[in-house]
Design a protein around this nucleic acid. Sequence first.
DNA 1: TGAATAGTGTCTCTCAGACAATATTAC
DNA 2: GTAATATTGTCTGAGAGACACTATTCA
Lengths: 235, 235
Amino acid sequence: MNPKMTPYNINEFKNPLFTVDSVLFTVEHNCLKVLLVKRANEPFLGSWGLPGGFVNVDADATTDITALRNLKEKTNVAPQYLEQLQTFSNTSRDPRGFSVTLVYFALIAAQQVSSHIATIDEVQWVELDKLNSLSMAFDHKMIIEHAKQRLQQKALYSMVPVYCLPEYFTVGQLKSVIETIIGKTIQRKSLIRRIEAANMFEAIDEKVKSGGRLAQQYKVKSGVDIVHFERNLSV
Amino acid sequence: MNPKMTPYNINEFKNPLFTVDSVLFTVEHNCLKVLLVKRANEPFLGSWGLPGGFVNVDADATTDITALRNLKEKTNVAPQYLEQLQTFSNTSRDPRGFSVTLVYFALIAAQQVSSHIATIDEVQWVELDKLNSLSMAFDHKMIIEHAKQRLQQKALYSMVPVYCLPEYFTVGQLKSVIETIIGKTIQRKSLIRRIEAANMFEAIDEKVKSGGRLAQQYKVKSGVDIVHFERNLSV
DNA sequence: TGAATAGTGTCTCTCAGACAATATTAC
DNA sequence: GTAATATTGTCTGAGAGACACTATTCA
């Protein structure tokens, strides 16, 4: 702390409660799923909610690290994709008073975490379609809905859904993941055009069985950025 | 506070410093400008920075209200457009320690505020092109750059730039504002097609002088949402 | 009338959608 | 061979870009 600065009274304002939560999606068996955690603390002890928690200001360099730390506790790995969704705040979402949650939106391949979370009772994948029958902590149900809409939008103009797939994947797998996310079928031809135009994938020598003709495998080139196409796929 | 809940130790975690800042843009004389405020407090006392401050948890229902309250203090009016940009956090951006700022991104017609801010020494519009020659508080220069990029993106697939214009505006004015924002010319024809397709404007009876043929005036229909087009204008 | 700005007509170009045709695998 | 899936070819359509053309105003 700079000793020359005029004293700042940190108690002049009550700081709001500030937490970081993550909506981690995956696609498994043609279902869009979100990772939920059984809460071990009040409020909403025992309810299902998003993985998250307070910032550890001594250990977390940024809130990104906070999100990753909390996700790693639950899944044992870092998600393949992570970005800020938005914050949600008001005086009623947390019974303790005014609270702000910074929500991240993350993607991972189901295979990367399934073995780990299968061993933990307090963590589960829940199908988006089955959220309504679940009672959830805070406003997390509404937050998941926002995150889903963001994911659906991104699926129309970018290749982010690829981060729901393992390292090597085929066009058919990517097509299926996108279709699950946006809830309608797309043209394989359009997807192939985009795979070529995006220039963010490389073909793998080895092909893979698929029930018919062998399928070309791809992987994400290292160090590439997500391309944003100038047109959406049709809704 | 719910008395039945198990006690929660609020001091278990040091809460990070949490502030709300806004990047308020306008377009005036074919220049994109941002509203800056001369800081009245440490740190960075006397430097120029974004309007913002702490949440007043007793008075602000949401962080949106915090942003609006701070902007109104400086401009005397509410901006015509306001949305969350993103948060920025780390241990070094504020000398007091780990801090998080939630940044909003706002637009307003220059006419609505020029008379008011002209009376205040501590508030000024600064052209985006002249930011480099200014020493700014915190990481606000970088934040403004992020906000500018978001604005530029939005200008390509939506009509948000209209919120830099007064209630009644012409196609020529909107074209000019968009061109200033994205830094290149666009086709008047394309803009007119979008104005019709968006279905968010209504033509006003009265036309207005423009140096040549009288120009049709438009206004934003009340209660409409921003339309997102499925294609971008070309960059 | 000419300069200036507003507005229209229309052709091209790009890329998504549709879908037929072909290729490759397992059985 | 057939069934199943992968891949390519190619036509259509929507909407942006380009730009010529017309319309209206003022000096």
